[in-house]
Amino acid sequence: MELKNKKCFILDMDGTIYLGDKLIEGTKEFLELLEKQNKKYLFVTNNSSKSAKDYVDKLNRLGIYAKKENILTSGEATCIYLNRYNPGAKVYVVGTEGLLKEFRDYGFNVTNGREELPDYVVLGFDTSLNYMKIWEACSFIRKGVPFIATHPDYNCPLENGEFMPDCGAMIEMFKASTGIFPKIIGKPNKEIVDVIYEKTNLSSKDIAIVGDRLYTDIMTGKNSGITSILVLSGETKAEDLEDTEISPDIVLESVKNLYEILI
């Protein structure tokens, strides 16, 4: 499998490029090499708690120059998906202010109460989650409002081996209350892969995906025929590979090793 022939690398962020507010060693050199070799790269994160602009700001703070067009979040992918079928729809978003702004920027009518049924309930990685949001969303879902979730990740990796509960854990809570499982847009699902193809103007054979999670990043590759590269710098550890049906094409310690392969 010749990685040097790939035209674009799809890069997860949390656990792959950085942990918390610390850049993973080798990241800057790897990105500079891709630019030198005229290869494309797209940061694709399932973390919908921040907007693309938030991620641009964070990457810039960490010393990585990025533009908005270099970023795709599961939140934006959800906006793009819903915009295809029901532009301007009324949406009840369980999410951060960054995610709400993203929906407004795409022209959706973001509602904030029970006065009338929305067209969709959208659940993101809501670090501002409170009981009233949970109650209102569950009430809408029980009344038949379509339930959409941005991504299925159970935990968000941080520095020093710590984790934050993520959207997948919240999905389980909503399902326990309503009995309804949402349609999920983010990795590893087809909907976000279609957006990746649109943004890169490339097909699966020209792309490799790099990430730290088996059930999202690596499954994205498996589901779409994209070469998958697992890095052990985030959620997945080497011992996790001993008891899984999700096999990455390549396993590396970090993006530093990928840099060494491509140089």
Rank of each mutant, 00 (worst) to 15 (best):
28 K>L: 07
131 Y>V: 04
2 E>I: 12
140 F>L: 10
122 V>K: 02
130 N>F: 11
200 T>Q: 10
101 K>C: 00
81 Y>L: 08
261 I>D: 02
38 N>Y: 11
233 S>L: 10
125 F>I: 01
146 P>Y: 00
193 V>Q: 03
122 V>P: 00
211 G>A: 06
156 C>G: 05
154 Y>S: 08
186 G>K: 11
239 E>V: 04
245 E>Q: 12
58 K>H: 14
19 L>R: 07
182 P>R: 08
87 P>D: 09
184 I>G: 01
100 L>E: 15
191 E>I: 01
244 T>H: 06
113 G>K: 05
161 G>E: 12
58 K>N: 07
165 P>F: 09
228 S>R: 09
16 T>F: 09
49 S>V: 02
216 T>H: 15
21 D>I: 00
156 C>W: 10
32 E>G: 10
28 K>Q: 11
140 F>H: 09
97 E>G: 11
23 L>I: 11
147 F>S: 05
187 K>E: 03
134 I>T: 06
239 E>P: 01
121 V>S: 01
204 S>I: 04
256 K>A: 14
82 L>S: 05
98 G>E: 15
187 K>L: 06
18 Y>W: 13
39 K>A: 03
73 T>Y: 12
186 G>H: 13
183 K>S: 12
236 T>F: 07
211 G>N: 04
195 V>I: 10
13 M>Y: 05
255 V>R: 07
175 K>S: 14
61 R>F: 13
233 S>A: 10
60 N>C: 00
81 Y>M: 08
172 E>T: 12
229 I>V: 15
55 Y>S: 01
215 Y>C: 04
62 L>Q: 13
174 F>D: 07
176 A>Q: 05
148 I>D: 04
2 E>V: 08
14 D>S: 03
124 G>N: 08
145 V>E: 01
146 P>F: 00
103 F>A: 05
192 I>A: 03
34 L>E: 12
97 E>H: 03
71 I>S: 11
24 I>R: 04
237 K>Y: 11
249 D>V: 13
93 V>M: 09
167 C>A: 08
195 V>M: 06
97 E>A: 09
203 S>H: 07
105 D>R: 13
55 Y>I: 10
160 N>P: 06
132 M>N: 13
182 P>W: 03
75 G>S: 12
235 E>V: 15
76 E>W: 04
19 L>S: 08
212 D>A: 05
47 N>R: 03
103 F>H: 10
26 G>K: 04
81 Y>C: 08
231 V>G: 14
93 V>D: 06
92 Y>S: 07
210 V>P: 00
93 V>R: 06
176 A>D: 02
149 A>R: 08
41 Y>L: 02
70 N>C: 04
118 P>S: 07
254 S>G: 12
245 E>N: 13
190 K>L: 01
119 D>K: 06
24 I>V: 13
226 I>E: 08
71 I>C: 07
77 A>K: 09
38 N>I: 05
204 S>K: 15
110 V>G: 01
23 L>M: 11
191 E>L: 05
78 T>L: 12
146 P>D: 00
122 V>L: 01
82 L>C: 06
123 L>H: 06
204 S>Y: 14
67 K>R: 09
141 I>F: 13
185 I>F: 11
172 E>Y: 09
169 A>E: 02
37 Q>W: 10
84 R>N: 14
189 N>G: 02
99 L>N: 10
124 G>W: 01
54 D>C: 08
254 S>V: 03
138 C>E: 12
119 D>E: 14
218 I>L: 04
